Measured scan of single mutants.
Amino acid sequence: MALNTPQITPTKKITVRAIGEELPRGDYQRCPQCDMLFSLPEINSHQSAYCPRCQAKIRDGRDWSLTRLAAMAFTMLLLMPFAWGEPLLHIWLLGIRIDANVMQGIWQMTKQGDAITGSMVFFCVIGAPLILVTSIAYLWFGNRLGMNLRPVLLMLERLKEWVMLDIYLVGIGVASIKVQDYAHIQAGVGLFSFVALVILTTVTLSHLNVEELWERFYPQRPATRRDEKLRVCLGCHFTGYPDQRGRCPRCHIPLRLRRRHSLQKCWAALLASIVLLLPANLLPISIIYLNGGRQEDTILSGIMSLASSNIAVAGIVFIASILVPFTKVIVMFTLLLSIHFKCQQGLRTRILLLRMVTWIGRWSMLDLFVISLTMSLINRDQILAFTMGPAAFYFGAAVILTILAVEWLDSRLLWDAHESGNARFDD
């Protein structure tokens, strides 16, 4: 018995066209964080690309023209004298008006014999932002004059995390709450300039795509075929072959399989920071003279006294001054041990922890910024005066060393310790 099946006739004509040209192939790229070699397709503007294995951002879609970056830099340069030299806060102490600005706080630190601690604050609040705007201006002028731009481009990517104007702005709020127990506070004209400078700096850093600047100024022929001998440069993120001198053909720094002496430098910085954190938390970090009496505060006791007036601000200072430094030390110690013992479990967790400490590390400088600003506000000789204690130097040095330890660690070593050939990683 035959089955009668109805015929289905399409209502619209289906047209099949042959592909007349070869589909576009992607360029081969190595991930600078996990060293995976993959094919990167062509990316349009405002599109980002991520590593298929570790999800690290390979290409950032946010990109401004150099002219727009230069305009932002010149605007920031105009704001800087007002943000640093004009009063941020006014207080009335014992019937006398006192003005506080950024430069005055750094000068008070240096004047009291601790120039190293003052230079830490100076670099993060004044030096690094000033280098940022002058570097962008150098790129703008240098591109037109045919100057060598490689050193500036190499420095810009590392400079971003040292620009800490946003953290200093939080420190202004913390210092205001600490001082309000002794005097009446009012915002100064410099505060508005400083807030504007923070906003412009944040926007500029978020749109400063150094890798795209490398592509514009020093374009290189990408690798179009897969080759395990391809290496990625950690300076400019170019994937290719080393030249005859073993250097990256684009930025001219040595092109090595792994960062040289990464573990040794990381261990040295980490152990030194552990040693410095002990006096930083045991010795007094601030000293207040009130009517001839002397009151010393460690980091913890200062947080407890701050909690009596504002528990939320005390929580912020606790996280930045105690929780973050010790968390960074514990995480980095764990990561280094996992590399030495070739741990194969929990790779995803370790990668996330490394990215976390990379982002939060700079916030530990908050305590030094609060001390710097408070020193310029309260300084009335023996009637009422505020000065920093010996722990300030140890704390600042420990924070900087932990930042350097994270920067010096080559994250690809975590993958080397893991089993080879993993296309995915999980716990």
Rank of each mutant, 00 (worst) to 15 (best):
Q47E: 08
M388K: 15
L40S: 12
M120N: 03
K160Q: 10
L165R: 01
G293S: 07
L368C: 10
Q33Y: 13
F326A: 04
I311T: 12
D63K: 15
L130R: 01
E419Q: 07
R259Q: 09
H207A: 15
I288N: 00
I98E: 04
M388V: 07
A392Q: 02
S176D: 04
Q220T: 07
A70Y: 14
E419G: 13
L169G: 03
C51F: 08
L89P: 00
I177H: 04
T402M: 02
I319N: 15
T75L: 05
T358R: 10
P41K: 11
S286R: 00
Y28R: 14
P6T: 08
L132R: 01
T75C: 15
D367I: 00
I199V: 10
S411G: 08
A280W: 03
T239G: 07
C236R: 02
I351H: 11
T374K: 00
D35I: 01
L94K: 00
Q108D: 14
A183V: 03
T349L: 15
A280Y: 03
V170A: 15
L200E: 11
D181E: 13
G61Q: 14
M76V: 05
L197P: 01
T374I: 06
L205R: 15
R221A: 07
L139M: 06
A175T: 12
G246Y: 08
A187Q: 12
V232M: 14
Y394N: 09
D410I: 00
A56G: 11
D243T: 07
H252C: 02
P222S: 09
P249R: 12
G173A: 07
N148C: 04
L69S: 14
G389Y: 00
T239Y: 03
K12F: 09
Y138D: 01
G302W: 00
S135M: 03
V125H: 06
D63Q: 15
V125W: 01
A128G: 03
I316R: 00
L282S: 05
T15S: 12
M365F: 04
E419F: 15
L78S: 06
L165W: 05
L282M: 08
C266P: 04
D27E: 10
L377W: 07
C54S: 00
A417C: 08
C343A: 11
L213H: 10
T358Q: 11
R355N: 11
P151Q: 01
H237P: 02
G346K: 14
Y28N: 13
S411T: 10
Q29R: 15
K265A: 05
L130H: 07
A73S: 09
A18Q: 12
S420N: 11
R144A: 12
A268S: 09
Y138G: 04
P10N: 10
D35G: 08
L200F: 15
I126A: 14
P81M: 06
I383Y: 05
A70E: 13
I311Y: 09
L154G: 02
K111P: 04
K111D: 11
N101K: 02
Q33I: 13
